[in-house]
Design a protein around this nucleic acid. Structure first.
Lengths: 235, 235
DNA sequence: GTTTGTGAAGTTATTCACAGCG
DNA sequence: CGCTGTGAATAACTTCACAAAC
């Protein structure tokens, strides 16, 4: 079986592809045309063989003796990650964080589209943010039916998060990105990720309190399951 | 009963401990007194043996037949993660995100203390946020000398991020948490973590575009190296 | 009966090391 | 020569399965 799309890419590799993507994007913007696995490895803080192995799952895109053509490699990664698409995103909770996300280049620039905005605050209903009208969260399922979101973003206070997640699941989202500092329950086929400041900090705290003698390097390219903006309590 | 702090805890386990910590915190607040590995596993979306193995690295704190005492287990995890401490945190960049972080319970509530705030904006210099005075970023090294931060948080625009990181390293921070959408270079002994929306989204995009037939569960408790609030461009 | 704790088995990921190509 | 691509070796992690404890 040699069809490229039939390759199974290891999970660990998938987690690193967005890192290479970002690095390549910066290199391309800076005018770099070719890049070696050593250079990528240094910027990504990983081993060079790991870079080569990771990239080899996408195909043989390098040139022996010189390296990888940055723009071409970037395109290949984007393709593999499914960034060709136009994923509709729904954002619930339009406090400071939600509004920042709604206006964020992060969504609009690369394959994502803000398809729905929701809150419960009277004063927000009906206004437009970034050209998208704000609806009451009670209308989530109805509004979403017309343009079912692939990704649901939760930027509400913790107390509302599970209820919002339930609505999202009912509306058929494929994955949920949760910024609220609360553990959520969703069906197993729905991808759930947390962005949680306190989880980030705890990993750092562990590192700080366990590094041995001064000069010891962390063997760490840590692998959170969850990350986050805990308790800015947006919404 | 072996001395717990002598054990070497696997990296993968460390990455999950903060998740268990959060779950336990919620359970304790909800009045739960004991919890089984099965319950924890379901909430953390992992296998129950994994929970038991992970917790066994901290010591034998469970009771066969009933489970773990939630509050006690929470205390043990906090201890292992080094949350007993009082880690000084410096935040550079006081735009929307930086201000939200400076006021965040996420820092103050659990072993972290905002020790320094920095920006370049004239109108911010000298004011206090959450009781901490804002200094010009040029004074970073000088101000930090008195109370060296363990963690440096970068919430500046991308263009300023590397310069800030350099100052932080010079001031001796042990780890850097970067919210700016930019790849940074720091010495290998400094722990560097990214919070980047676009990296989160790319993992989701991969999942959405590769799930096979409907009903297929993601084998995924993905492991980013980097995450993030890309390009809200705070500061 | 229930649930932990853990060796052993199985799986996945990383690193090595070098042939092969430009 | 330099750098990729990749089998083979090693290491890390996960899961199984069950004895021991409550």
């Amino acid at each position: 079986m040699v069809v490229p799309s039939a390759r199974r890419i290891p999970e660990a590799t998938v987690a690193r592809l967005p890192v290479y993507q970002r690095i390549l994007l910066e290199l391309v913007r800076a005018g770099t045309t070719t890049v070696s696995s050593d250079q990528l490895a240094e910027m990504a803080r990983v081993n060079a063989s790991k870079v080569r192995k990771d990239l080899s799952f996408l195909g043989s895109f390098g040139t022996r003796g010189s390296g990888y053509e940055a723009q071409f490699l970037l395109t290949q990664i984007d393709r593999e990650l499914g960034l060709h698409g136009d994923w509709p995103v729904a954002i619930v909770g339009l406090g400071n964080l939600g509004r920042a996300l709604a206006n964020s280049q992060g969504f609009t620039s690369r394959g994502f589209r803000v398809a729905g905005l929701f809150d419960v605050e009277e004063t927000l209903l009906g206004i437009e943010i970034g050209g998208v009208r704000v609806h009451h969260v009670d209308e989530f399922e109805r509004v979403s039916a017309g343009d079912p979101p692939a990704i649901g973003v939760i930027a509400t206070p913790a107390s509302a998060a599970q209820d919002v997640a339930n609505r999202m699941v009912k509306a058929g989202v494929g994955s949920v990105l949760n910024f609220a500092p609360r553990v959520l329950t969703v069906p197993p086929e729905v991808l759930l990720r947390y962005v949680d400041l306190s989880i980030e900090l705890q990993v750092m705290s562990f590192y700080l309190s366990h590094r041995d003698s001064p000069g010891t390097a962390p063997a760490w390219s840590p692998l959170p399951h969850a990350v986050g903006l805990s308790s800015a309590e947006p919404g």
